[in-house]
Amino acid sequence: MREPLAPLETHVAVMTDGAEIILRRHGNVDKPRLMITNGNGFAVDGYRVFWEPLLEDYEVVAFDMRNHGQNKPAGGDGHNYLQFARDVGSVFEAATNRWGKKKTAGIFHSMSARSALKHAVQMGWVWDALVLFDPPSVPPRGHELYEPMRTFEHKLIEFACNRPDRFSSEEEMLALYREGRASQHWLPEAQEDMARAVLRKTDEGYELSCQRELEATIYLGALTLNLWPPASEAGGPVKLIGADPEMKGGITGRANQALGLEQGYDFDYVPGTGHLLQIEKPAECREVMLSFLHKSRDRLIADPSSLQHLRCP
Rank of each mutant, 00 (worst) to 15 (best):
D165C: 03
D165G: 01
D165W: 01
R166W: 05
F167L: 07
E170T: 14
E170M: 11
M173N: 05
L174I: 01
A175C: 04
A175Y: 05
L176F: 07
Y177A: 06
Y177D: 02
Y177T: 01
R178D: 15
R178E: 15
E179W: 04
E179A: 13
G180R: 11
G180W: 06
R181W: 09
R181S: 14
R181I: 08
R181M: 11
S183A: 14
Q184A: 12
H185G: 00
W186Y: 07
L187G: 09
L187Y: 02
P188L: 14
P188H: 09
E189M: 01
E189Q: 07
A190L: 07
A190P: 09
E192A: 12
E192Q: 15
D193Q: 11
D193V: 06
M194G: 03
M194T: 08
A195R: 01
A195P: 05
A195F: 02
R196G: 00
R196Y: 06
R196I: 01
A197C: 09
V198I: 13
V198N: 12
L199R: 02
L199W: 02
R200G: 08
R200H: 10
K201C: 03
K201Y: 03
T202L: 09
T202I: 07
D203S: 12
D203Q: 13
D203E: 13
E204V: 13
E204C: 11
Y206S: 01
Y206Q: 08
Y206I: 07
E207N: 08
L208P: 11
S209P: 09
S209C: 13
Q211S: 14
Q211K: 15
R212M: 05
R212N: 14
R212E: 12
R212C: 07
E213D: 12
L214S: 10
L214T: 00
L214V: 00
E215H: 04
E215K: 00
E215W: 10
A216D: 04
T217H: 07
T217W: 07
I218K: 12
I218W: 04
I218L: 15
Y219I: 03
Y219W: 03
L220W: 00
L220H: 03
G221K: 06
G221M: 07
A222T: 05
A222M: 11
A222F: 05
A222P: 00
L223Q: 12
T224K: 00
T224V: 06
T224L: 09
L225A: 02
N226Q: 10
N226K: 04
L227R: 11
W228R: 13
P229A: 10
